[in-house]
């Protein structure tokens, strides 16, 4: 990055902060690959703006660039909060293109993994510089105690960002919200199914309360 863009960026960060009362807060949607981050981002965007954010897929690393949906106005109990939602690529410490070769040919798998690594790096960067709050999405049918989850929550805490944990996919038989609550007792956990639209009232109440 050139000195000038860097300078411009840091000035805009300062002004962002100065005007933080009016400026919509940027809420990053983070979590491991395939947790349902994009499905959630799309549901929020569709519910409040009418259009979607990005593609969802059962193949991990579908989202490979952070995508922002600006000025999402959420109304709860007569109160309106305006946020920018940032859907980020699922964070991991490893990417092996051979995981995708069942689903696509080698060239596409290699391209997908290269884009995924760039996307994860970008997501980490956003987390250090550009988000004001975090929605951490977990697949509640999976074990929440993984190194990536522990590390990411630690990173988020160290930056003093407000964070909500979303226990997604409660429609699945193996779902356990308690497992997530027990793993991260220091944070509020909100159960939901982004795909089926279950418990979205509580989702929006908490977004309004935490990020408003």
């Amino acid at each position: 990055m050139g000195l000038f863009t860097e300078l411009k960026d840091s000035i805009s960060r300062v002004t962002d902060r100065l005007f933080s009362e009016q400026e919509p807060k940027r809420i990053g949607i983070y979590g491991p690959p395939n947790a349902g981050k994009t499905t959630l981002a799309n549901r929020i965007a569709r519910d409040w703006t009418g259009d979607a954010v990005g593609a969802e897929s059962h193949i991990p690393h579908e989202t490979r660039r952070a995508r922002r949906k600006e000025d999402v106005e959420i109304e709860r109990n007569g109160k309106t909060v305006t946020i920018d939602i940032v859907d980020t690529p699922g964070v991991t410490t490893k990417v092996d293109y051979e995981e995708f070769t069942d689903e696509m040919d080698k060239d596409d798998a290699v391209r997908r993994s290269r884009e995924a690594t760039e996307g994860v790096a970008e997501a980490m960067h956003w987390l250090r510089e550009d988000v004001d709050g975090v929605i951490y999405v977990l697949d509640s049918a999976e074990d929440p105690i993984t190194q990536v989850n522990t590390m990411l929550i630690g990173i988020i805490e160290s930056r003093d960002l407000p964070v909500l944990i979303f226990a997604n996919k409660i429609d699945l038989d193996d779902s356990s919200v308690k497992r997530i609550e027990d793993a991260f007792p220091q944070h509020k956990t909100v159960p939901l199914s982004a795909k089926e639209g279950e418990n979205m009232d509580e989702v929006y109440e908490n977004i309004a309360e935490y990020f408003g």
Partner: peptide, 28 residues
């Protein structure tokens, strides 16, 4: 530190290359 962990993930991602380096396992 959490900040260093975040950078470790970022640099690891930059160094992943097909058939050569898949990234890291890390446990604390």
């Amino acid at each position: 530190t959490p900040d260093e962990e975040s950078k470790l993930i970022e640099v690891t991602m930059a160094e992943i290359s097909p058939d050569e380096f898949n990234g890291i396992e890390i446990e604390t």
